[in-house]
């Protein structure tokens, strides 16, 4: 299945943020989305999810325009991990994950045993079962983020769109999320992830998409797109993309800022 943006202009009430956007996401691939703050990453995500109307062009899921998908059907295929935000009410973690099952319920139905099992399973996958009975509002930012990822998994989506999923996570949880992203890719999900860490692209063996100056400036395989020159251009700092060997003698790349 493919999720596609075709000749689109994205932005808000007449003010374009990204123009000439063409993008195809396939199942079984990871795409990392780079770009400095305000480059339009979240705008693209919101457009992909149908949260803001397109200023031009179209978004197609499985060849059908997003305009012709119902909310619920769309949410069964595409899940979203937004940047963590405050929640007004103290829901327990298990319930928050259960909310991910909403798209699979019929109109007035409540979640059943099967849904609860799926929710527990998603918590298990992310190694956060111990949080199940805690109140979401009482968790740290990083823990909340993990719970929101679990909620998206509970949607059992084909495509997973994540807006800086590692943003408030400690080093260990960042690695866990990346490992989970790789595992989900192997289960043939299509993943689009915004990140401020170019290294994540290397760790995910991802395709890279770069938003710069109101366009999708570059896209392609991480080794070819992430270069010293590209990073200098978008972030305006000097970076060295280094190659080194890990314990298994595999070549890995990493970005080191030159200070």
């Amino acid at each position: 299945m493919e999720l596609e943006i075709r000749n689109a202009t994205l932005g808000y009430s007449g003010k374009a943020v990204l123009t000439d956007v063409n993008l195809t996401l396939s199942t079984g691939t990871t795409t990392c989305f780079l770009g400095k703050n305000g480059a339009g990453k979240t705008t693209l995500f919101r457009s992909l999810l149908g949260l803001v109307p397109l200023l031009g062009g179209d978004v197609l899921l499985d060849g059908r325009s997003i305009r012709r998908w119902g909310r619920r059907d769309y949410a069964r295929v595409v899940a979203y991990v937004p940047q963590a935000r405050a929640l007004a009410f103290p829901f327990p973690v298990r319930d928050v994950v259960l909310f991910g099952r909403t798209a699979h319920l019929s109109t007035f139905a409540y979640p059943r045993r099967k849904d609860r099992l799926i929710a527990d399973d998603c918590l298990e996958r992310l190694h956060i079962s111990h949080l199940s009975d805690r109140l979401f509002t009482r968790l740290s930012g990083g823990e909340q983020q993990m719970v929101i990822v679990a909620r998206a998994l509970a949607q059992q989506p084909t495509f997973l769109i994540m807006d800086e999923p590692t943003a408030s996570l400690d080093f260990g949880n960042q690695v866990k999320i990346i490992a989970q992203v790789n595992a989900l890719k192997d289960e043939s999900l299509g993943i689009l992830m915004a990140t401020h860490e170019p290294d994540h692209a290397f760790m995910c063996r991802a395709n890279v998409l770069v938003a710069h100056n109101g366009k999708l400036w570059k896209s392609g395989d991480c080794d070819s797109v992430i270069t010293d020159a590209m990073l200098k251009e978008i972030y305006d700092v000097n970076v060295c993309v280094c190659r080194m060997k890990d314990v298994n003698n595999r070549i890995i790349r990493t970005c080191l800022p030159v200070i």
């Binding site: 919101r46 999810l49 149908g50 949260l51 119902g70 909310r71 619920r72 059907d73 769309y74 949410a75 069964r76 595409v78 899940a79 979203y80 937004p82 909310f99 991910g100 909403t102 798209a103 909620r151 949607q155």
Partner: peptide, 10 residues
């Protein structure tokens, strides 16, 4: 609204 929509609620 945004999260609700992305979870499939109109």
């Amino acid at each position: 609204d945004e999260e609700a929509k992305s979870l499939g609620v109109n």
